[in-house]
Nucleic acid binder design. Structure first.
Lengths: 211, 211, 211, 211
DNA sequence: CATGAATGAGACTTCATTCAT
DNA sequence: TATGAATGAAGTCTCATTCAT
């Protein structure tokens, strides 16, 4: 009994070990240039063991993506249901994404570079999941529009694309060191994204217009 | 003389013919899945002729990208120098990108999907060129900040990423039919992007804040 | 003592259980497509246990073949020694093969498809054993020729090949459902094979030739 | 023009050259143990060229089989239509198969060993074609039965299996040197097969039965 | 006896690029 | 210029067998 439990545990560990190695290798070389033998070597296991735990190289990336993306979807939906104003909701969504990157930049690099931005390969495979994030953001915007808190001349789907695109581009900038990414940047980024995008989505008051 | 000219012309035609075929094939199948034989077939020329005009498959994409991207850089810089307020400048930049897509969606698809979003492959190769666009946008923002027209708590580089990211995501949405792309969408998109992003970058007046 | 016996018995059971599973899997998927894991699963035992009882996947098939083939050889030889005319002898041989199929079609399918007809793999390994069957049949024919009961212008080896080939082809037809295989077919097949082949081997009388 | 023709000719030659090499390699090592590199080496061409002419290793065997088997089918059907008695028809069919072996034993070895006898792999793929041969033979038998030339207590399908099985077994015996295969054997074999099998299929006259 | 994780060699296929004509 | 045959390196996946527990 104990033996079986231990064995299962060890097996799960090995599986995780391989998956973590895959993250590092995919982040370093890109999915396409990553050979299965690189992953095995990085994980310190035999070639064949990778195929003992995974059906294919693709499956590893799919699993990495889905595992993380579902957390993101949960986070957005939870923000939507538990917070009470659109700024806070969108701020929480942006914050989750940014924290994900801060916490595990390699994994987020893989997810963004190899999946969400790889529209011709894995992006297509996961389009439905990715779209769910757009939809969840669009719902927040639409609710805010109905409540008179956001301008209504922008469609909520359109706004969701801008919002998500801005964040993803920011992460991409960090990933490829186009823009600096220090600890203080992460925090200010959260605030600024919300400021900037939500600011643009809120109705302008009459006073703004020069008389 | 005339013969030589004709010959050159015909040669240039063939070259162009192959390049145009490459656009269609890359757009349809993606760069990676596109075989050189597919391009030759699409162009209606012999396999080997592709290698007569181009050194490699990569070179074709590089050329397609650089050709178009330099127009984009020119357009942004010209907008910056010829227009006099940041909304107009950014509007012209966004407008150029959107019009490029409207005019030749396949080419823009290739450029975005295979280069600017393909950070692990061609995006890396062309990072310097891509960065020039960010910089040109950032310059517009920085100038506006100095002139007091844009808020200064957002770094201009950061703002440029948001702005560019929002536009690129919008195009990506059109490309993969996540958001609708009809003629009227293009026009309203131009206005709305500027409204939304510039609106967020402009300073909020006192009147906005509830008393 | 009893314990040891029981243990041996249980062990023998497991071994048999695996061997029987192998028959089913080989019959269903073919030897080559059968994975050791398939056999273990079919037998309901752990993967590794297969290798506790057998040295290799090959060994299982070898054992299945030899076990059954030796019964066949015994049957032919016994028929030869205990019966007194060639028709009866050959009829008994054919009958044994047909009954073997009727009794355990999966095993006979494996033996025929994977061994006797698989001349490039296991057929080669067991060529000597297979040849013994040909020889035993040829001996029956040769004896009949010496006794004047069979025509002598056909070599006994040649006749043996025809006889055996006809039977094996018939089973193959049943196996792959090229010809029907119902209970009544088996019985009539026995009679007809002997009729047809022995009929062809018996000397023609003068009366047959048109005067 | 001439150039194109020459090139096509050379290309066809290379294709044939590879196919012929495949016959030798398949005959020597068996399909399964034959590596594509072995075939390329035997043909004296580069590895990749094999895939320039053929889609897969399987395709080569399929082509070899179908090419030859269609000749066999034609031969049987022609014999049926052009000859006027069942002995002659079946004799021509058997003769064609035997001559095929005499003329190109390696090809016939491949066809028999890797296809018609390989019921679990290629035999399945080509079952329909193989069955056509059985059917063509059965038709000859059935016609003879209707004409009163063959006994009617044997179904024509059954008889076809015996006839074909006997021949195939004979070739198999030659292939694996179980029975001798010299020039004189081929000729006598033709006569004897017909004698033996047709003899068994013809009605026995009263005189035969001992009074 | 029993388990199933771990090993690693092996082969097919793809396709960018080169080359002879 | 134009053709398309020829080259060969590279990498995924399979699975029999071994081994530690």
């Amino acid at each position: 009994m104990a033996t079986t439990a231990n064995r299962d545990e060890r097996a799960a560990d090995k599986r995780r070990q391989i998956l973590d190695a895959a993250i590092r290798v995919f982040a370093r070389q890109g999915f396409h240039s990553a050979r299965v033998s690189d992953i095995a070597e990085e994980a310190g296991v035999a070639y064949g063991l990778v195929y003992h735990y995974f059906d294919s190289k693709d499956q590893m990336l799919n699993e990495l993506f889905t595992e993380r993306w579902s957390l993101l979807l949960d986070a957005i939906r939870q923000a939507d249901s538990q917070l009470d104003n659109p700024r806070a909701k969108l701020g929480a969504a942006a914050g989750f994404i940014i924290d994900s990157y801060r916490h595990d930049p390699e994994l987020m690099k893989v997810i963004i570079v190899e999946v969400t931005r790889a529209a011709n390969s894995f992006g297509r495979t996961h389009l439905a999941e990715i779209r769910q994030a757009y939809d969840a953001i669009a719902k927040i915007v639409a609710d805010a529009q109905r409540a008179g808190e956001f301008r209504t001349d922008v469609s909520s789907e359109f706004a969701a694309m801008l919002f998500y695109g801005a964040i993803e581009q920011l992460l991409t900038g960090w990933i490829f060191e186009v823009v600096p990414a220090a600890d203080e940047d992460y925090d200010s980024a959260k605030a600024l994204i919300v400021e900037t995008i939500c600011g643009g989505l809120e109705p302008r008051v009459a006073a703004e217009l020069p008389g």
